[in-house]
Design a protein around this nucleic acid. Sequence first.
DNA 1: CAACAAGCTCTAGTTAGCTTGAGCTCAAGC
DNA 2: GCTTGAGCTCAAGCTAACTAGAGCTTGTTG
Lengths: 161, 161
Amino acid sequence: MSSAQHLPRSQIRIGDLARRAGVTVATLRFYESRELIFSTRTSGNVRIYPLHTLRRVAIIAAGQRVGLTLTQIAEALADLPKDRAPSQQHWEELSSKWKMLVDQRIAQLHSLRDSLDGCIGCGCLSTTKCSLFNPQDEAAAEGPGSRWIRNFDADFGPHES
Amino acid sequence: MSSAQHLPRSQIRIGDLARRAGVTVATLRFYESRELIFSTRTSGNVRIYPLHTLRRVAIIAAGQRVGLTLTQIAEALADLPKDRAPSQQHWEELSSKWKMLVDQRIAQLHSLRDSLDGCIGCGCLSTTKCSLFNPQDEAAAEGPGSRWIRNFDADFGPHES
DNA sequence: CAACAAGCTCTAGTTAGCTTGAGCTCAAGC
DNA sequence: GCTTGAGCTCAAGCTAACTAGAGCTTGTTG
């Protein structure tokens, strides 16, 4: 089971896929368990991936870069054919969608930056007055670890400390 | 231990703090365990926070919005006085630093978007030519290949701030 | 034929940021 | 004097995306 001499060029075993895709074999098995990629097995139960899985893994990485969770990526990938490389049209749809998400995220960060800008001179940090603490851009809480600001319902009261 | 009649206005119990800050009491206790906020105790072991803790919590939320981890936020907060509200200068320093981080992040997203832009018209999905997919694939030849995606976010960290 | 590399499954651990729940105390009100 | 509500501690659980390790199989090679 070492070098893939007997495999058609269009197929690849997990170790080679991992090396070429730049992830670990464990990650690939994990992706497979999450149904992001698919394999067949040899008689000896060894995973065999179609070569274009390489592309799928690349798309997964791209999706993560965009800020999507694996679940969201899985949904996107579900629209792609499992048995061959995605067509140009497939990819165009996906990448335009993702581009829009990046654009949105950029816009959010711009408004966050503006808030910080405003705050620098201000320093009030008032939950009622300060734009930093009153974002109008309802945000997609992104990943674990980064909750978006929540609504501060009250101000600091009549007697600011 | 119900309504805070007997507390000075400058102090606040955890329940009220939670309500006014828009987080749960559990979260506040968690923040305290992480040394992001501090309390004294009554004879009955009840936490008493200085009122300006409200501001500290607001700053924590702002830091999260910027994309910092609680550890990074704790470092930033360590420069603020524990016993009173931060001065305007404190806040100016903090918010300018954070603004720079947001700017960096925006720049990163811009380059990501440019990659996607390039990819949309291209559709090649070529692992050799496409700037978005450019792992060390295909030219699988070892050697200093393209650094890619996965290290993209790596330098948004606390390293020296 | 034995060694060894590559694969396999399954379970558990990691980090971050909380959340949930059990079980207990304390002070006030009816 | 008992219920109620707010608090307390400690422990465990959760989600995401993996990582690590034990223990076993498979298949090629010297």
